[in-house]
Every structure is written in structure tokens, then in C-alpha cells.
Write a protein that binds this DNA or RNA. Structure first.
Length: 990
DNA sequence: TCTCTGCATAGAGGA
């Protein structure tokens, strides 16, 4: 279990075993077997034996792996063989039907497309395929009459739904329509053959079971009813997931009579190949079906071009081979790194599945670039990996544009991203939805169970259904579910996993409303649901994709490689006059008037830059104002600007300011995540209000504004495949992971990163990845080129006393106050006089001192007082501390004090900040949080007028950053002792 | 030794 510290083991139907030992048994004259010693008990006692034979011994299973066993177990022994049983390796890793069927031809490609998810470019044929699916699926559920189908086809092709894709592929609606129309007659032919006049069709062969025996049945097929389209099934039994195009009730008419079954129907719009890949997909869907209903034993392949339908029998042998294939893919995905020496901690990248020797297949492969890249950068160094001789020169040729430094960068980042991915999978991942009962998961706030659907389902827009859920018995327990969060809706009952996904619209005491991708009104009225917070594997594909793009043989990538990997010196032009158009001079001068000296310097530097500029925005120095001014100046000069940040909130902060000036912009990204005042600038809203229905109109919208704003992850938008910007500005750049930050840079000629590496770095979960340098942001990396750096040093947040702490700690005295007013500002406490009277008692004199507005900074030493630090606080490094504080304050009548972590407070400020440092004992286990001086810097630079810090001085002196701070405070007489058993929260000073 | 943001997605077809 070394690899998965939080693995859940269990017996029974949904069992999970840990493999303790693997031995290969080869007796003379008999077939080889693999014997696994396994256990389902967390203590790793109570072992059982699992015997793999008849081909199953080839499953690559090693000690520490988690497996699921299907079949029968007698006397503690499982047998997985030819006729019965399945071994499912890492069953909680659900692999899609297409991933497995594509691995038949090339497993390497299947693994790569899982890693570099979403990096396949797409094609017009694919889009036609998607639209045909849509038309057929809607027609078959509603009406297959020719006029109706034609009408629907028109509605879909000339509607809004696929405009983005058409724009991306640069195809016109009429073109698509022409291709679609060629298919429609086959739709009617199919309906004729299989719905209206099944008696006229030719017989087809199906293998179906009958009283324990499987026999060939010659039969005619009648589709009686359509139960679902795009049915989404997750199967943690087989480690599979997928969407079934059409789930139909089928009557099978044969000699012995008729029988009815619910069966999967897979639609194909391409060549009528009846290929192994296509058939395998159907067989996998029959396995998925087992999650919801009786074994269909077969399914159908329907080719839309001809209306021909092929039966696909899901024989045990085929299912077995496909599951073995699944296990192989799962093995490569879970064992993508390894530790070469037992006990030593450095991980290395493992080899991918071997390169196949089939130039015909490789010629058209969409993963070719990644395949060659990995072989060149990672595998060519491995003595154990051999390549097909003919491919070696091809690989070298395709990667010859890369220097050794580039290949090193690739393999280092690939390793770090993989390690981080593994950490993320252990921490979250979907498996809790099926492995943890809703009642238990509710305690952590990540789930709401026991819900029933109430009211009608509204189709808000195409494919977006508004659902209302109500708790069956009273109020919803405390939950982390927030408006805008992603949710997975499942049935509480087994087999109804992942019914739909969507977003939370509203949360009240008893109800939750969600916008879901599927309409659930067809399920029985009494279905009980659970809503799980979808932490998903967000953004795991994005950095891989950007890494791959950085290594491409094209000018944009080459330039970025030079600047980022090889630290090529950024260049600047000499004179502003060459970039500043005469007609913009006055406007620019006016904008500059409102800025301070370092801000003006920043503007100038950006305008002169040929490559990039880094703006260091120290706390309170008006980063947002600066960015806003920068965008105004750049657009006044006629430049196009791409404005991005890691979070939607930060993007909108700039836009809210920008909206006040006459600068137009287009906001991309999900409307749910966008600030209400910015909604009207979103693509979604513009397309709705102007009822955009053609590619040309959409193109016009995209080209209407020189300024486009979105989050760093949002640069997958089709607009960026076509447009290049003059400048790209990335806010919060010191907090963004290097490869995520890279995304927007591909679409612009020059870039500006705004951040402060003295504040918190990008979050990295995996300790090894962190040690390898993964938390180095692009901002930090490029900062060594000092000629590209401008510092904003004039701040408008903190008064001089508060500012001096951070100046002493990290900024070497560079920070200065923007004005006398800022410097001398004190807190406004209107009720202080009355409070002082109430506090006549001498024992509370410390409190008087603390409350005095002239005491701008004070550290309360809890060393002698024995006062619980948990009594005080507003910001703290620790979540648990915040929970305690929040609970205490919940008793207050009016409670507007905002309690949050230091990390979450980054980028924000308040008049008064109380920092609770919590630690109150001197032991060897120093937490890592307080060792980070960047976190301390953030904590002490949030207050404008009054900064109160609470903690035990001797305990905190063990942390170097705090020691430095406390020494300074001591010398300034800013530390005072806490009065006995007093607590600020009782006084309600705020 | 406890800090946490990003996002739609599995399959659309071709050899």
C-alpha cells in the first residue's frame, strides 16, 4: 500500500484487495500461473490467494497494487481463468471505452492521449460525426419523420450549439449541412428496417445464452423503445466509464419466439468498417450496462452512412481480452514513475508502452509529436528500451530542432507534473463518490445526500437543465458546496453513479438547485440522489499540453524556448517615439498623470519591450490600477491585448476598473464564474442578446474588441487558435504554475507578468516535485533577468508602522508610503471612549493599550498568560484554527468579521488584521507553514491601519522568519504581554 | 504536519 496511503480496502461485491506478494508458478508440462497473496483487511492480515491462469497471468501486477476481483471465491482462494472471473487492476481508475479500444492498435497512443488530454486537434469529419449523432439521437427519441428530421438538422446546424467548433475548424454552416443531408435518407431506411417493418429485414446472427448454454440465434431485430441517449455510466467494478449513444429496448424475434432486452447501440458516421475497434467499443458498453441492468450479452453497431446495423456479441473471450488490455493501460498510467533504488527517494520516469512498428498507423497518429518527444527526451537514455530500427532516424529527425537543454526541461517537467498528478489522485479523485457513503462524506462537507428531485426541470439553454433537489428529511447539513461549484449527481442506490454533472446554481437551508448537462426527469420520482462536490482532475491536462506545445517545431514555440528555457536576454527598443503613435500621445499623457513614478516607469518599460517585462507589485502598490492603466495605454496605441490571471476573481477585478473607462473588452469563460457586473461582456451573454447564429457573426464578435480577458486555463478557447495579440498581461503571475502560465503566452508577441515572488508561490502538493523545483513560477524564473524587472514600491495600503515590518523582513527598505495620509492613517473606533469606561479594571490595561489607535502594530505575547490562542483571531495559517474562531464568533449577533487563511487573504486587505500564530509549544515538530517567510510577508502586509499579532514568542522564535520579525518588534517595544484569561472576542471591539 | 486554484467531457473519424 506504499503507493496509496489512503487506499480503501474491503470485501464483498465492490471489493478492493491489496496485492502483497506475486509469484510465478511454472510447472513442467502445464501452463504458467501467477499466484497473488492478497488482503482486503486494512491491517494487511487475513490474506487470501488469487490464482491467475489461461492468459490472465500476463496481467502486469506487482506488490502494492490495488485490485478488484470478480467471480467466485472458495475457501479463501480466487481463480481467474478462461471461463470465469476477472481481475481489475486499479479499479478506481475508470478508463473510457474509446481509450481501451484505441489501445488495441497502439497502447502507447492510448496512454499518451490520456496524459495529454484534449490535445487532439479535431477535424471537420469529427464535427460532422458529432452533429449527426445529435440529430439521430434527438430524432430517434422524438420523431423520425423525414420533414421533422430535416427541420431538426436545420435547427442544429444553423443554431448556436456548434458555432465555436465550426469557427475553430474554419468551416461554413452550409458546408456542414451539405454533408449532413447525404446521411438523412439512411436514417429513414434504418427506421423502416428496424422500427416500422422489422419483418422485412434480413436475419442476423446473435450469440445469446439460453438455460446456461450459449447458442447462435438467427433473428430479426425490432427497436421497440428508446430508453436513453448519451447515457453516462461509471463502473467501478470493471474500472470502466463511457457514454452509450443509444440505450434501446429491443425485441429479438427468432424461431423459438421473441424476447426483449435492453441493449446498447453505438452510432458511427464514418466508413462502414465493422472493425475490431468499433466492435470492442460495443462489447465494453455491454460491460458498462451490467452496472444498471441485466446482461444484454450483445449490442449493435449502427453505421449512419448506410443505415446498416451489425450485431456484436459480447463473448466471454472478447470481454476477457478487453479487460486484460484495460489492465495493461491502467498499469502504464499508474506506474508512470518508479524509484530505481529501494529506500531512496528520487523518482524517475518509466518507459511508455513500446513504439509499434507500423509506419502506416504512425503516419496518421495525432500523438506522434508527444510519442517522439518522450522517446527522445526520456526513453533513449534507458538501456532497456529498444526502438524499431526504421523509426530511430525518424524520431531524431522529428526532434532535431530541440537542444539538450530543451529535452532536459521536457523530462524534468514531465516528471514533476506526473508526480503532482499522482498526489492529486490520492488526495481527491472521483472514487469517494462510490467508495464513501454519502452520510460519511457529508461530514467533510464535500457531499449532500438523501436528496429528492422537486419541481419541474427547466431547459435553460440547449443542453443545460435546471434541477431542484430537496433534502428528504429536513435541513441540508453544513456543506462546502458553493454557488458555481461543479457537482456530480448520482443515485444513492448502487449503479446510478455519475448520472449527470453540472454546476450549483443556488444553495438554501433545504434546497439545492443545479444546472446539469442531462435531464433527469425520466428517472423514477422516488429516486434518491447525492450531490458530490466535483474536485475532478482539473487542469491536469493543461500543463502537459503546454509542455508539448513548447516543444513544437514552430517559430512561436522556438522563441519561447529561447526566452524561458535558455534565458535569452529580453530586448528593449531605445525610444518611445517609435511605438507611440502621435495621435495617442495626449491620451497616454493623461493616463500617465494619474500614476506615481514607479508606475509610470512600468508603463514605459512595457512599451519599450520587445520580449517581456516583469512588474513586481509589492503589497498595496496598486497592481490593479497599474494593469488597468497599462491596458488603456496599450489600446490607445492601437495594440491588441490578452488579459489573463490564474483566478476569475483577479481577472474581473481589473475588468471592473476597466469598465469605468471607455475601453471595450470581451470576457471569455463560464458566465457562472464571472462577476455579475461583467456578465454583459461575456461571450455567452453577447451571443444570447444579439442572437448570434452564424460563424460569420461569431467571428465578428471575436474580432470586435482589441482587448480579450480570460483565465489562464481558458486559453483553450477556439479564439486563440486564430488570433495573435500584441501584448499578453498575466496578473498573479508569481502564484501560477510555470506551465499553466505559459498557456496564454503562445498567443502573443510580447508579455507582461505581474506578481511578487516574495508572496506565496504556486501550490504544489507533491513534496518531491516541490524539491525538484515545481513551485518556481515563470515570474520567479525570469526574474534573474533584472533588465526586464520594474518594481512598484509606492504603496497605499499600510501606515508607516505596519509597512516597516515587511520592509525590514523582505523588501530591504524599498517600500514607501504613497502619501502622508497613508503613512499616518489610524483606525477609526467610534465607540472606543465608551468601551474604555467599561474596561476600568486595571487587569485589562493591556487591552486599552492594544485598542489605542496609535498602537498600529502590536504583538501579544501569550507566553505567560496561558491564554488560549484559539480565543483570538482573524487570519491564521491553520484551517482548524479558523474553524474554532468561526464557531466562537457564530454566537455574536452581528458578525461581519471575515475569518480566513493567510493564503486566501493574499491580494486583499482590511483596516484591522489580527493574526493568530497558534503554535504554543516548543517541540521538534515544527510545522512547515510558518517556515515560509513568504507566507509571513503576506500575513503582515494585509492590514491598513492596525496589525495585531498573537502568539507565544519563545515558541515562534524557533522559526527563522518569525525570529527576525520578533527581534525587530522587541527593539521597537511592540510586544506586550497578554492579560490573564482575557480575550478580545468578548469585547466585541469591531 | 496539514496551506488549496484551475475546469465540461468521452468520443467525434481516420488508417
Amino acid at each position: 500500500v506504499a503507493d496509496s496511503p489512503d487506499a480503501i480496502l474491503r470485501n464483498g461485491l465492490n471489493n478492493r484487495y491489496c496485492v502483497l506478494e506475486v509469484s510465478v508458478i511454472q510447472r513442467n508440462g502445464s501452463d504458467p500461473e501467477k499466484h497473488l497473496t492478497i488482503t482486503a483487511s486494512p491491517s494487511l492480515e487475513n490474506t487470501e490467494l488469487c490464482i491467475l491462469r489461461n492468459g490472465w497471468e500476463s496481467v502486469p501486477v506487482v506488490p502494492g497494487d490495488i485490485v478488484h476481483l470478480e467471480g467466485e471465491c472458495s475457501c479463501g482462494t480466487w481463480v481467474v481463468g478462461a471461463q470465469s472471473g476477472y481481475l481489475v487492476l486499479y479499479p478506481d481508475l475508470l478508463l473510457s471505452g474509446t481509450a481501451i479500444s484505441s489501445s488495441i492498435r497502439c497502447m502507447r497512443r492510448a496512454v499518451l492521449s490520456e496524459r495529454f488530454r484534449g490535445s487532439e486537434p479535431g477535424s471537420p469529419q469529427m464535427l460532422v460525426g458529432t452533429i449527426l449523432h445529435d440529430i439521430f439521437q434527438q430524432s430517434v427519441t422524438n420523431d423520425l419523420a423525414p420533414e421533422k428530421v430535416q427541420e431538426l438538422a436545420n435547427k442544429i446546424v444553423y443554431g448556436q450549439k456548434y458555432l465555436k467548433e465550426m469557427y475553430l475548424l474554419n468551416v461554413k454552416q452550409a458546408q456542414i449541412m451539405q454533408e449532413i443531408e447525404e446521411y438523412l435518407p439512411s436514417f429513414f431506411k434504418w427506421a423502416e428496417d428496424f422500427m416500422h417493418n422489422p419483418a422485412n429485414q434480413n436475419k442476423m446472427q446473435l450469440k445469446l445464452s439460453n438455460g446456461g448454454k450459449t447458442e447462435d440465434v438467427s433473428s430479426k431485430i425490432e427497436v421497440v423503445d428508446i430508453l436513453d441517449i448519451e447515457e453516462n455510466i461509471w463502473s467501478p467494478r470493471f474500472g470502466l466509464k463511457g457514454k452509450i449513444d443509444v440505450t434501446a429496448r429491443v425485441r429479438i424475434h427468432c424461431q423459438a419466439g421473441a424476447q426483449s432486452r435492453v441493449m446498447p447501440l453505438e452510432l458511427k458516421s464514418g466508413k462502414e468498417s465493422n472493425s475490431i475497434e468499433h466492435r470492442s467499443q460495443v462489447i465494453l458498453y455491454t460491460l458498462l450496462s451490467l452496472e444498471r441492468r441485466a446482461d444484454p450479452e450483445a449490442g449493435f453497431l449502427l453505421y449512419l452512412k448506410t443505415g446498416t446495423m451489425y450485431p456484436v456479441s459480447a463473448a466471454r473471450m472478447d470481454r476477457r481480452e478487453l479487460m486484460k488490455l484495460r489492465n495493461h493501460v491502467a498499469f502504464y498510467l499508474t506506474h508512470s514513475t518508479y524509484k530505481p533504488d529501494v529506500g531512496r527517494q528520487n523518482s524517475q520516469l518509466a518507459a511508455l508502452p513500446p513504439v509499434i512498428d507500423d509506419s502506416q498507423t504512425c503516419k496518421y497518429c495525432s500523438q506522434m509529436h508527444n510519442c517522439f518527444l518522450y522517446s527522445r527526451a526520456v526513453e533513449q537514455k534507458m538501456p532497456s528500451v529498444a526502438f524499431p530500427a526504421a523509426l530511430v532516424p525518424v524520431i531524431d529527425r522529428e526532434t532535431q530542432h530541440l537542444k539538450p537543454s530543451h529535452l532536459e526541461y521536457f523530462s524534468l517537467w514531465y516528471l514533476m507534473l506526473t508526480l503532482e498528478l499522482q498526489s492529486g489522485e490520492h488526495k481527491k479523485g472521483y472514487k469517494n463518490i462510490w467508495m464513501t457513503p454519502s452520510l460519511e462524506r457529508e461530514k467533510a462537507g464535500d457531499c449532500v445526500g438523501n436528496m429528492v428531485r422537486v419541481d419541474e426541470v427547466h431547459e435553460v439553454s440547449e443542453g443545460q437543465y435546471l434541477h431542484f433537489f430537496q433534502r428528504r428529511n429536513g435541513a441540508i447539513p453544513g456543506t462546502n458546496l458553493l454557488v458555481g461549484d461543479r457537482v456530480v449527481v448520482s443515485g444513492e442506490e448502487k449503479g446510478l453513479l455519475g448520472l449527470a454533472t453540472g454546476y450549483v446554481r443556488e444553495v438554501s437551508a433545504t434546497k439545492v438547485s443545479c444546472l446539469l448537462g442531462r435531464n433527469l426527469s425520466n428517472l423514477p420520482k422516488n429516486t434518491v440522489f447525492r450531490l458530490d462536490h466535483d474536485e475532478g482532475d482539473v487542469g491536469t491536462g493543461v500543463p502537459f499540453k503546454n509542455l508539448s506545445k513548447l516543444m513544437k517545431d514552430c517559430p512561436v514555440s522556438e522563441r519561447l524556448r529561447n526566452l524561458i528555457i535558455d534565458f535569452q536576454k529580453p530586448c528593449f527598443i531605445q525610444h518611445l517615439s517609435s511605438v507611440l503613435p502621435p495621435e495617442a500621445k495626449e491620451t497616454v499623457a493623461n493616463i500617465l498623470k494619474g500614476l506615481n513614478k514607479p508606475q509610470k516607469q512600468a508603463m514605459k518599460q512595457v512599451l519599450l519591450s520587445k520580449d517581456y517585462t516583469l512588474i513586481v507589485g509589492m503589497p498595496g502598490t496598486g497592481k490593479t490600477t497599474t494593469i488597468c492603466a497599462l491596458v488603456r495605454i496599450l489600446s490607445a496605441c492601437g495594440f491588441s491585448v490578452l488579459l489573463t490571471s490564474f483566478t476569475h476573481t483577479a481577472v474581473d477585478n481589473v475588468l471592473l476598473k476597466l469598465a469605468k473607462f471607455k475601453v471595450g473588452f470581451l470576457r471569455l469563460g463560464r458566465a457562472q464564474k464571472v462577476h455579475p457586473d461583467i456578465q454583459k461582456y461575456t461571450e455567452e451573454e453577447i451571443c444570447r442578446s444579439r442572437s448570434i447564429k452564424s460563424v460569420t457573426d461569431l467571428e465578428e464578435v471575436y474580432n470586435s474588441q482589441p482587448v480579450v480577458a480570460t483565465s489562464c486555463m481558458g486559453v483553450n478557447h477556439p479564439i486563440f487558435a486564430q488570433k495573435q495579440f500584441d501584448f499578453c498581461i498575466v496578473d498573479e503571475a508569481s502564484q501560477i504554475s510555470q506551465l499553466v502560465c505559459l498557456g496564454p503566452l503562445f498567443c502573443s508577441k510580447r508579455f507582461v507578468l505581474v506578481g511578487d515572488h516574495q508572496q506565496l508561490p504556486p501550490l504544489v502538493l507533491n513534496a518531491e516535485a516541490r524539491d525538484l523545483g515545481m513551485s518556481e513560477s515563470l515570474f520567479k524564473r525570469l526574474e534573474q533577468n533584472q533588465n526586464a524587472v520594474v518594481q512598484l514600491t509606492v504603496q497605499y495600503r499600510m501606515n508607516s508602522k505596519i509597512m516597516s515590518l515587511s520592509n525590514m523582513l523582505v523588501y530591504e527598505g524599498k517600500l514607501e508610503c504613497g502619501s502622508e495620509k497613508v503613512s499616518n492613517a489610524t483606525v477609526n473606533l467610534p465607540n472606543l471612549k465608551k468601551l474604555k469606561l467599561d474596561l476600568g479594571d486595571a487587569s485589562k490595561s493591556w487591552l486599552k493599550e492594544v485598542l489605542d489607535p496609535d498602537t498600529a502594530v502590536c504583538f501579544l505575547n501569550t507566553e505567560k498568560a496561558g491564554c488560549k490562542p484559539s480565543d483570538i483571531g482573524i487570519i491564521s495559517p491553520y484551517r482548524h484554527q479558523l474553524k474554532t474562531i468561526t464557531d466562537l464568533m457564530a454566537k455574536w449577533k452581528e458578525n461581519r468579521v471575515e475569518v480566513n487563511t493567510v493564503d486566501k487573504y493574499q491580494g486583499r486587505d482590511k483596516s484591522i488584521i489580527i493574526v493568530s500564530f497558534v503554535r504554543n509549544s516548543i517541540d521538534e515538530n515544527l510545522g512547515s507553514l510558518l517556515k515560509d517567510w513568504r507566507r509571513l510577508n503576506v500575513a503582515i502586509t494585509r492590514a491598513k491601519h492596525k496589525l495585531l499579532m498573537v502568539g507565544c514568542v519563545p515558541s515562534l522564535c524557533c522559526y527563522p522568519p518569525l525570529e527576525k520579525l520578533l527581534c525587530h518588534l522587541q527593539s521597537q517595544a511592540m510586544i506586550s504581554f497578554f492579560g490573564a484569561h482575557e480575550s478580545i472576542h468578548k469585547c466585541n471591539i469591531l
